[in-house]
C-alpha cells in the first residue's frame, strides 16, 4: 500500500528538494511507502483533498480546518516557534503610510492563499474596508503581487510574511509593509488521514524525536524550522475555534 503526502503550496520553492529528502527519511523511519505529490496551487491541492488522494499533509490553518472538522484528519505535530503571519505592503513612494490611508475603491493585489487573505482582510477593517468596497485581484504568486504595486496597478498587496521576507532587496525597498500581523497562534501543522491512523503514533514519535539525531536535525532545519512540537487534538480544535472567529 502506498500513502500520499503533500505540502501546502505556500512553502518557499527552494524547499522542494527538502520535502523530498524528508519523505525519504519518513519512509525509512516508518517502513511504509509514501508518495510525495506537490501541487502548484491551492486549487489542485483542494481537488486532491476532495478526491481523497491525501493521507499525510503539511497544511496551512485554513485547510486544516476543513480536513479536521469535515474529513476526520488528526493533527500530530507543528513546527516549533513558527506561526503564520501576513503583511500588507504598499509602494514606498506612494504616500500611503498606514492602513487608514487606503480608501474605498482601492486596488489590492493578492494570491489564492486563504490564510493570508483572511488575516489581511482583518487588518484593513480599521479603514472601513471590506470585500464589498475594494477591488481585489488574485495573482499566481507574491512576486507578481509586488510587481502590481510597483507598476501602480495596485495600491496595496497581501503577502505571506515569510514570502515577503524572502523577496529581493530591490522589491523590498520598493514595496514596504504598513502593517504586519502578530497573531502568533495560527500555524501550519502536520495532519494524518483516518486511512493512515494505524501509523499515527509511529509518525508522531518519529517527528517529535527528529531533531535528536544529526541527520534528522539537518532535514528538519532544511524545512525551515528547528524541531516539531506535539500538536494535540485540543490545540488544533482551539486554533480552529480561533479561525472561526476571524471569518
Amino acid at each position: 500500500m502506498t500513502y500520499n503526502l503533500t505540502v501546502s503550496p505556500d512553502f518557499p520553492p527552494e524547499r522542494i528538494a527538502s520535502w523530498f529528502v524528508f519523505n525519504t527519511w519518513l519512509q525509512k523511519k516508518l517502513g511504509v511507502n509514501i508518495h510525495l505529490e506537490l501541487y502548484d496551487d491551492f486549487e489542485s491541492q483542494h481537488q486532491a483533498m476532495e478526491a481523497g488522494h491525501v493521507d499525510l499533509i503539511y497544511v496551512n490553518p485554513y485547510d486544516a480546518t476543513t480536513l479536521v472538522r469535515e474529513k476526520g484528519f488528526e493533527a500530530i505535530a507543528a513546527p516549533q516557534g513558527v506561526s503564520d503571519e501576513a503583511v500588507i505592503a504598499v509602494a514606498s513612494d506612494g504616500g500611503i503610510k498606514c492602513v487608514e490611508d487606503l480608501k474605498p475603491g482601492c486596488h489590492i493585489a493578492s494570491t489564492d492563499d486563504k490564510d493570508v487573505h483572511m488575516m489581511c482582510m482583518i487588518m484593513i477593517e480599521p479603514a472601513d474596508l471590506t470585500a464589498s468596497n475594494i477591488n481585489l485581484s488574485e495573482h499566481p504568486n507574491y512576486v507578481i503581487v509586488a510587481k502590481k504595486i510597483m507598476i501602480g496597478e495596485a495600491q496595496a498587496g497581501f503577502f505571506y510574511k515569510q514570502a515577503y521576507e524572502k523577496m529581493s532587496k530591490v522589491i523590498k525597498s520598493a514595496v514596504v509593509p504598513i502593517v504586519t500581523s502578530q497573531i502568533s497562534v495560527i500555524k501550519h501543522m502536520f495532519l494524518v488521514s483516518p486511512r493512515f491512523s494505524e501509523h499515527k503514533e509511529a509518525i508522531k514519535a518519529a517527528l517529535l524525536d527528529m531533531h535528536n539525531d544529526e541527520k534528522g536535525r539537518h532535514i528538519v532545519e532544511e524545512l525551515g524550522f528547528d524541531s516539531w512540537d506535539e500538536q494535540t487534538q485540543e490545540d488544533t480544535e482551539f486554533m480552529i475555534d480561533l479561525m472561526d472567529t476571524l471569518v
Binding site: P126, A127, F238, D241, L242
Partner: peptide, 12 residues
C-alpha cells in the same frame, strides 16, 4: 468560550 478582539474601525 473563546473571545478574539481585533482593531476596530474608528467610524464604527
Amino acid at each position: 468560550f473563546a473571545s478574539v478582539r481585533r482593531k476596530p474601525s474608528r467610524t464604527k
